[in-house]
């Protein structure tokens, strides 16, 4: 599983991309795993406006994850 962090989330964690093997089986399990190593990151992931995308599709709520999934955490977006 690839995990990607964007924007300020990458600065908080000190990494922007990681491969996890074995892979957590759900979004909740992934967040719990990250929380065990990095509480500030876990708090930021639960912060306002942070969305998750699995295989480049936004997911709302809980979801199971395939071993090959690409999971991205997206803080509030701003272009232009």
């Amino acid at each position: 599983m690839r995990v990607l962090l964007f924007g300020r989330l990458g600065d908080i964690a000190g990494w922007r991309e990681r491969t996890l093997d074995p892979a957590p089986a759900s979004l909740a399990a992934l967040k719990a795993m990250l929380a065990r190593e990095d509480l500030p990151l876990a708090q930021a992931l639960d912060g306002p406006g942070v969305q998750a995308a699995v295989d480049k599709r936004i997911v709302r709520g809980e979801t199971t994850l395939a071993d090959s999934a690409e999971v991205a955490f997206l803080p509030p977006m701003s272009g232009g």
């Binding site: 924007g7 300020r8 803080p75 272009g79």
Partner: peptide
């Protein structure tokens, strides 16, 4: 389209 890009397009601006 500009209003969308400012607040919803997947970019992160530093």
């Amino acid at each position: 389209l500009m209003d969308y890009l400012k607040s919803r397009a997947p970019f992160w601006k530093k």
